[in-house]
Simulated scan of single mutants.
Amino acid sequence: MPNWAIDYVTVATTRGYMSVDPADGERLFRLRVHIPGFAWEIGATDDLGLLVDVIAAWRDGVALDVLAAEFEFLELEEFAGALDRGEPTSSQWADLLSSDDDSGDLLRRLHADEGLRTMFPTITHRAVRLRVDPMDWRSHHVLVYEVDTERYMTEGPGAPRAEVPAGDLIRHLRAALDEGQ
Rank of each mutant, 00 (worst) to 15 (best):
M1T: 13
P2R: 14
N3S: 15
V11H: 05
A12L: 09
T13V: 02
T14M: 08
G16F: 05
Y17F: 15
M18S: 02
M18C: 14
A23E: 08
G25D: 10
F29S: 00
R30H: 07
R30S: 04
R32C: 07
V33L: 11
I35R: 06
P36K: 04
G37P: 00
G37A: 06
A39Q: 15
E41V: 03
G43K: 08
G49E: 14
V52N: 13
R59D: 11
D60L: 10
V66M: 02
L67N: 03
A68H: 09
A68Q: 12
A68T: 03
E70H: 10
E70K: 14
E75F: 05
F79V: 11
G81F: 03
D84Q: 07
P88D: 06
P88K: 05
T89A: 13
S90A: 14
S91R: 10
Q92D: 04
L96D: 00
D100I: 02
D101M: 09
S103Q: 12
D105Q: 13
L106G: 05
R108D: 08
H111R: 14
D113P: 07
E114D: 11
E114C: 03
F120W: 13
F120S: 09
P121S: 01
I123D: 09
T124H: 13
A127R: 13
M135K: 13
D136C: 04
W137Y: 05
R138K: 11
R138P: 00
R138C: 05
V142Y: 08
L143D: 09
V144A: 06
V147L: 14
V147P: 11
T149L: 14
R151L: 10
G156H: 08
P157V: 03
A159R: 14
P160Y: 07
R161L: 11
G167M: 08
L169P: 07
I170C: 05
H172V: 00
A175I: 09
A175Q: 14
A176P: 04
L177G: 00
D178W: 08
Q181C: 12
